[in-house]
Simulated assay, not measured.
Amino acid sequence: FTPQQIHICYGKIPTDVIIMWATVAKGPKMSVQYSFNTKINDFNIVVADQEELKINNEKGVKFLYRAYLKGLKPATVYYYKIISKQNGVSSDLLQFNVPSTGFDHFQSYMVLADMGPYTHNLQNIVHEAKNNEYTSVFHIGDIAYDLHTGKGSTGDKFLNNIQLMTAKLPYLVSPGDHEAKYDFTHYRYRFSMPTLSWPMKTEELYYSFDIGPTHFISLNTEMLFHVFKKDDQLAWLEKDLIAVNKRSKRPWIIVMGHRALYSSCDNRKDCLLETPIIKTSLEELFFKYGVDIYFGGHYHNYERSWPVYKDKVVAQHYKNPKAPVYITIGTLGQEYLPEPIRRPGGQWSAKTENKECFGVLEIFNSTHLHWKVLAAANNAKIDQIWVIQT
């Protein structure tokens, strides 16, 4: 009954927090006990929902739990334990931060993709996240290589390996091609993302939420290859972008999706056949509604574009850009498939890198955004830009 694979995420709004975990055996009801001081008391208890993950999970931990904490105070540290009073089970005392909702409060986000239990520098990344004041972590698809591999045991191993990070920081995921098998079942059951029901529905694996001046959108780019399934997501995306009303509500619009729109990768069919489908589906909407940055993975390299629209460079700077910036941050997948960039794919390509790395998105206020890329081995700075809106 001991809780494992603990990870947290935002609920419908960032002042709601979802806590998830798994147990080997099915037992009596389990709960989360929480407080904003270290003296956990019985007045703050949420009973968890429970589901059983059966499909291709013969060797995996089957019993999954989800507790939804509502109405938390912004900019506050909370302490929590996962407990079962009936059998005396209790996790260690853990903690998380509820983000500030203010527009001028600094926020910092770790951004990565294509990461699994055999990523070379996995524990360096986990400890970097745990020991620093990140607001949350975005993992943009290809999670664990794969959640269902080894009949579920690989997903268990990975989620336990990153628990030091994910029990403290909201872990926001987007589905990639490696999550699609078995109708996304392991992804839909193992995670619960903002605004979505749980287990998540196959046809609704996309979501958005706001923190301070930033509107975040996560897409299921795998659905864009299905003619009869992509229309609902694209209609939702346009409606969501219209509702942002960028100038008066959210100055920054950040979109995440596993598949890249721009890539200099040239050594597999994805580059020639699949990337154009993603670009045709999304680029016009991003340009029309003022998306600032699109983050993707899939290709196991790093690449940053200039502001670009339909392969034409709009500017070779990032002050008041008139088109989106496209960033691929998939280098952590090199252990599984090396994909070095041999040459830039066009004038739109501003920076490439083949070392394992992760990104840090820093929102300073409504006018200044900083992006930096750090080597996974030693945190050495590889790339950085300022995006400025005046």
Rank of each mutant, 00 (worst) to 15 (best):
V255S: 03
D266H: 13
L224H: 08
L261M: 15
K246T: 07
L241M: 14
R250Q: 15
K269N: 10
F209Q: 04
N245W: 09
L219I: 11
V255E: 02
Q233K: 01
C265P: 00
I254N: 01
T214K: 04
Y262N: 12
T202E: 15
Y262M: 12
L205W: 05
L234T: 02
E204C: 03
P251I: 04
K246G: 08
V255C: 13
S263K: 00
P251A: 12
F209E: 05
D231R: 07
Y207T: 13
F228L: 10
D266G: 13
M223S: 08
R247Y: 10
F225V: 01
A260R: 00
D240E: 15
K239T: 15
E238G: 06
P213G: 06
V244M: 12
F216E: 04
A243T: 02
A260H: 01
F225K: 08
C265H: 14
K246E: 05
L205I: 08
H215P: 06
Q233V: 01
D232V: 05
S248P: 00
S264P: 10
L272E: 06
Q233C: 01
S264K: 02
D240N: 15
L272N: 05
H258L: 04
S263M: 09
K229C: 02
T214W: 03
S208F: 12
I211R: 04
H215Y: 09
L241C: 13
W236R: 01
S248I: 15
Y207D: 08
D232K: 12
F228R: 11
D232N: 06
F209K: 05
R250E: 13
P213W: 00
M223G: 07
